[in-house]
């Protein structure tokens, strides 16, 4: 479904992504793990068009999107739960969700999707008139996920959804991710919590300083000595 091939990304003189390649098959959960500064977020930003690669190509559903504008990429079916949630704090929960469907013109379906989000996150329904900035961290994460779902994505990019959340909430968020996936949305999950990420993913990539150093099925990586030592603490 998504094919990232040999992309090079630079921040000025810094070579942030080096000949990076990732393949995501439809219906799968693929995770990208690695330490701080490895280039995980940069990879997501490049896929969603916020950063341009200097070379290489990205194709989505067999269409080249390497130079496509971010809003067109969203319309094609890739939406993102950005790092640190980034909800619109002065807007209400409802308005935040509406923003997620900004590009959509099919009003009836948008309403149905809104209902779906509320069924998935009853807390958001209770608080739909509340300002997003007043929600707790976990609720904001749910809102960020709900907002991304409002774009009706085929591929959902998630950037560190567990960041800053209590262990119980992390577990809940990961169950939600699995559930979203089981309803047909392909997921690219960027995580520092390698253990959790590998436990729900089908395939995984390990990144270090802008490069993929290991890849395979999540099971393989979970049992790999290197991954165990570097990321799983054992």
């Amino acid at each position: 479904m998504l094919e990232v091939k040999d992309i090079d990304v630079y921040y000025g003189a810094i070579h942030a992504l080096k000949k990076l390649s990732i393949t995501i098959e439809k219906g799968k959960i693929v995770t990208l793990i690695g330490a701080n500064g490895a280039g995980k977020t940069t990879t997501l930003k490049t896929i969603s068009g916020l950063i341009r690669p200097r070379s290489g190509s990205i194709t989505f559903k067999n269409v080249d999107i390497t130079r496509t504008a971010p809003e067109k990429i969203v319309a094609m079916g890739i939406s993102q739960v950005p790092e640190g949630r980034r909800v619109f704090s002065a807007m209400t929960v409802l308005e935040n969700l509406e923003m997620g469907a900004y590009l959509r013109r099919d009003k009836k379906e948008v309403e149905m999707d809104m209902e779906k989000v509320f069924t998935r996150f009853p807390r958001l329904k209770e608080r739909r008139k509340q300002l997003a900035g007043t929600l707790s961290g976990g609720e904001q994460q749910m809102l960020a996920i709900g907002r991304a779902l409002m774009a009706q994505p085929e591929l959902l990019l998630m950037d560190e959804p567990s960041m800053g959340l209590a262990p119980l909430l992390v577990k809940e968020i990961f169950e939600i991710i699995q559930d979203i996936n089981s309803q047909g949305t392909t997921i690219l999950l960027v995580e520092q919590n390698a253990h959790m990420a590998l436990s729900i993913a089908d395939n995984a990539y390990v990144m270090e300083t802008g490069e993929i150093v290991l890849q395979g099925t999540a099971k393989e990586l979970m049992n790999s000595e290197e991954v165990k030592r570097a990321y799983l603490g054992g």
Binding site: L50, P70, V74, P82, V87, M99, L103
Partner: peptide, 13 residues
């Protein structure tokens, strides 16, 4: 104003 990156991610030019 609220969050430029988030709004870009929402598909706003």
């Amino acid at each position: 104003r609220e969050d430029e990156i988030a709004s870009e991610v929402m598909g706003i030019n």
